[in-house]
Design a protein around this nucleic acid. Sequence first.
DNA 1: TTGAAATAATAGCATTACTATCAAATTAAA
DNA 2: TTTAATTTGATAGTAATGCTATTATTTCAA
Lengths: 245, 245
Amino acid sequence: MLLFQNSYPIFAAEFNLTVPPMATSLRIDLNEKLYLRDPQDTELGRRLVAESVMLIDEIGFEQFTFKKLAQRIESTEASLYRYFENKHRLLVYLVSWHWATLRFQIRFHTHNVADPRQRLQLILEILTRAHYDDPSTVPLDEAALYRVVVNEASKSYLTRDVDEDNRAGLFREYKRLVAEVAAVISQIRPEYPYPHALVSTLLEAARKQLFYAQHLPSLTDTKNRTAAETDILGFLQGVAFGVLS
Amino acid sequence: MLLFQNSYPIFAAEFNLTVPPMATSLRIDLNEKLYLRDPQDTELGRRLVAESVMLIDEIGFEQFTFKKLAQRIESTEASLYRYFENKHRLLVYLVSWHWATLRFQIRFHTHNVADPRQRLQLILEILTRAHYDDPSTVPLDEAALYRVVVNEASKSYLTRDVDEDNRAGLFREYKRLVAEVAAVISQIRPEYPYPHALVSTLLEAARKQLFYAQHLPSLTDTKNRTAAETDILGFLQGVAFGVLS
DNA sequence: TTGAAATAATAGCATTACTATCAAATTAAA
DNA sequence: TTTAATTTGATAGTAATGCTATTATTTCAA
């Protein structure tokens, strides 16, 4: 996210970005309902978030517990429960963080691009390259976070409490992202009746096809794993521009 | 599935269908690795499967336990563990059951349709109407099973053990389904490079968009919930035929 | 009718997902 | 700079989960 270093204050208001006194990294403020105490406010909170990404990436969300995380960051279970109500909320927080940075990246890279088709093209490139961003200036390992998103994001809403969680605004970041990209779709073809469905499908497909390439290759069409990114981009382009022509 | 009553022996071999001595319902044989003891062989096993669908539908997979199911069917936890290694295997079994019947339905309704475009059209209709099938002749409540598939299917493969489970062949039914529909895609447009990705995306989208229509409507484009099915079909048609033109 | 197989009944165990209590350390306010 | 408030750590505890094991009882087939 080195790219943002000079320019991000432009978007600060819209993105709920806080520019810290000594701005060394980007701070994204997410819905307060996501946590009990804002983890970005304290050292322990920041370690909790940063290390949770690594741990979930390593052992998977099902195996992940606050106890294991506490051991890892040399704190206690009880302390961590003061930040997040439960591990599910933490997952929603992490995933929301990813959507927020993704939306930010999209805005940043497309804000001076007039042609909506070219915008969409850029968006698809960002979507399929989301796991490449330079993590050095960011408080989280974004590559690890992207893997977590690919593997676990669905679990953030596929629960008994979707409706309740939705009412609490837990999925706001994802909705915003979808709405913003859907607006580009509508610019390209105003009469197209399914812009939101298209965008949510493209977003989901970007992740799922990457997962398939890694684990269930017969559900996708990439021969060598390294070409996956290019193949997925090609596939998404075909879908998006196919629908819009 | 009344439709199958007369004709299904045609496909029996290919579909691993067993025609029971007194054929009152369809029997689908799934990968043996899915269970410890074939639940279709015993009364307890059949009740286990049938009631698990209802219970998962009611309380969700996370809240579902063998203990609760045992109470429900007036058996014991230990007895149920003799059929399935754990609740995850049971989920994979249920989901596989659904993919198998879906593939069967597709074959049945399209086997005398020569034009591949028309075939694809029918397939998309079946996909978006999957939850309507008459459950009376089938040992499972298919409408409930479809809801379970919509809500829980992703969890069958989004686990730490995907690769291991995949090696054991647990996802065979889904792969078969994808392969078969992908073949239709390739008939329509042989040079299209992503038939499998397209099909897995369409399958996933059919379920996800229904979920969104019910729980997160801003991620889709259906105004009233009742029109969801028609909208989803329209959307999938746009994607599929858009890509193939 | 005898033996094998399946089921029920019961118990037990390590782990999970928390909650509660209290003391110690840190930080902020007077 | 003492005091007060806040945050953390340490420890314990609890109900539920995800199993496994044991034994007794029923069923069913040879």
